[in-house]
Amino acid sequence: MTEPLLQVRALCRRFGDLRAVNALSFEMEPGRVYGFIGPNGAGKTTTMRILATLDLPDAGDALLEGLSVLEQPREVRRRVGFMSDQFTPYPNLTAGQFLDFFARAYGLRGRERVERVTSLAAFCGLETFLDRPASRLSKGMGQRLHLAKTLLHDPALMILDEPTSGLDPRARIEFRELVRELAARGKSVLISSHILAELAEICDAVIVIERGQRVAFGDIREVGKGLHEHLRISLRVLRDGAAAERFLLTQPQVQAVSRHDGRLSFDFMGDEEALSGLVGRAAGAGLGLVEVRLLESGLEEIFLRTTRGELQ
């Protein structure tokens, strides 16, 4: 089993009477993208700030590559890149000078600094914007600059707190591509967003929290499976849909059959072995079967089924 990159252990954080984070635990493996979702006020930002060493838990700890955010903040900061939802560039500084400053601030020297800034500007599509004042960049370009800044010290873990908030659809799609590219380069990413469809496309796993507590955690597919006691199947037939519906209703372990435009969907109470038998019988029944699909729970369904929308 791969050694976890991040181990979050019973993290607690209170603000007066409010329990922002309540005994939260999870682990992250290297090179994977984790969606961090929950209703407003669930404790996502607080957790992310603790992981980035910007806040201190009242109890519990988090270990990044075995280093404690509580006791070894300097070492953790060298390994973590935190991109908050707010970005305030310095006035009277170009985008290039902004990146150059942070490269120096992260201790990059000489050719390494120049090359890192140039390559990250290229990666984030900023080459033609480097001589523009950073404070006058569009929101989308500003977020790219923020991302490039976060990547300067080559962190093992990227923490992105609602990075696409306020971006237009094109900027959002482009940003999503950048995160996908980061994952392809082996970075671990913890990303929060309220746009679940967007997260579903880039995340391997999900952590759902509500009222500071973990309510779901794991691979999206597996978590989705865990929400149902049965499989949800979709069939498409070329010919008589009504005949196919009658066929399904006669089959064991099949329930809740519905038909729409030649596509049938139903709940299957058996295991995958039994499903294989059912598909074989359907193919032999002359229904013109062209497609069988296992319907998985999306992030939206996971979110709706695991959270109650309770606010603190």
Binding site: Y90, P91, N92, L93, T94, A95, G96, Q97, L99, D100, F101, A103, R104, A105, R109, G110, R111, R113, V114, V117, T118, A121, E127, T128, F129, L130, D131, R132, P133
Partner: peptide, 27 residues
Amino acid sequence: KSGAPQLGMSDRLNAVLVRDVQQMLNG
């Protein structure tokens, strides 16, 4: 590009010093 960082004497200087002087000259 003109906005890209350059190698130079400032490489060993305090990062905040370099940035503040740049900001001053741009202002």
